[in-house]
């Protein structure tokens, strides 16, 4: 930036007009983002502190923390949050472990890799709604793949209505979440693995370090920044996800898969309680921020230690 101060007045003047020209080009991009996402988002946060309702002739009043005290005593809301956290944690962790395994395999020079690489991308290419439909076919109680596979291997007694049964619905939905989100995580981890200097591994191998040892002491620490970034993002995406579970179960059976986003959606657009729904959104943001804060702080300490 020091060079800027040393510039001749003429050059500075030219730069200024250059900047004005730039702002003119940037404005068409800035305006819609401001009007249709920044402003609504701020407004949405504010609505969480009001009694806003759907409908034309409704007046909205500021109610402070009333929505939140009401939410505190709302059992359904708590149940939904618990489900949301179980979902987000299980999917993120399982997704990470599965993706790490796959990325490590893809980083070796095995045959059939083209097939796995392609297949690993397909779930990513599929719209969440279609993924939901596809797994409905897989879990179908009569015509589904899972029950038929169990029957073929002689465990037909285990066959059940996976998405309709109280005890299996959430785990079944979590498996779909892992399936759908694995590609992104795999691709990012694979990119990270390819960034680990080969010399490090070779040197360690020469020194007689076992594969396992090299993985723990070289690959994993080198991969840490990528791991922290992708697991944080995955967690946010999973906690806020909607389409997949909406299509799979619509929150059923009996609310066993009612993720917070589904709950807030129903609150807003089925019952018209805009204020309450926005308040739920605020609580979701708060929870994510707090969790991320602790997670990232711990990782930072590990790096500094």
């Amino acid at each position: 930036m020091t060079t800027l101060n040393e510039e001749l007045p003429l050059a500075r003047k030219k730069r200024l007009s250059h900047n004005r020209y730039a702002y003119f080009l940037v404005l068409p991009a800035l305006a819609p983002v401001l009007i249709l996402s920044v402003v609504p988002l701020l407004n949405g946060i504010y609505l969480g502190f009001t009694d806003a309702r759907a409908g034309l002739n409704q007046t909205t009043h500021f109610t402070g923390i009333e929505n939140y005290t009401e939410l505190l005593s709302n059992d359904l809301f708590w149940a939904s949050f618990k489900i949301g956290l179980i979902w987000a944690f299980s999917v993120t962790i399982l997704q990470f472990l599965a993706a790490l395994g796959l990325a490590l395999l893809l980083n070796l020079n095995l045959r059939l890799q083209w097939l796995t690489r392609t297949l690993a991308l397909v779930p990513w290419a599929m719209p969440p709604v279609i993924v939901g439909i596809m797994w409905q076919l897989v879990y179908h109680p009569d015509a589904g793949l899972v029950n038929e596979a169990l029957y073929r291997v002689g465990m037909g007694d285990l066959a059940t209505n996976w998405l309709g049964d109280f005890s299996t619905a959430l785990p079944a939905v979590i498996v779909v979440g892992v399936w759908a989100g694995m590609p992104q995580t795999t691709v990012v981890l694979l990119a990270g693995l390819q960034g680990v200097p080969a010399e490090l591994n070779e040197a360690a191998a020469v020194d007689g370090a076992s594969t396992w040892r090299r993985f723990w002491s070289i690959t994993l620490p080198q991969l840490r920044p990528v791991i922290v970034a992708i697991t944080s993002l995955d967690f946010i995406w999973n906690f806020n996800s909607f389409g997949l579970v909406y299509v799979l179960t619509t929150g059923g059976p009996g609310g066993k898969t009612m993720l917070p986003m589904l709950f807030a959606y129903e609150e807003a657009f089925k019952f018209g309680h805009f204020g309450t729904a926005a308040a739920m959104g605020n609580v979701m943001v708060l929870i994510i921020v707090v969790l991320l804060f602790f997670y990232l702080r711990r990782r930072m300490r590990e790096v500094n230690a």
Partner: peptide
């Protein structure tokens, strides 16, 4: 933006990251 150094760059990147954090419900109602 690419040719002129500008603060909008940082803002755009910050917005991309920040907007991931908020559940769509907060955006969609307003």
């Amino acid at each position: 933006l690419a040719r002129v150094r500008s603060r909008i760059n940082t803002l755009a990147t910050a917005w991309i990251l920040l907007s991931q954090l908020f559940p769509f419900i907060l955006l969609v109602i307003p």
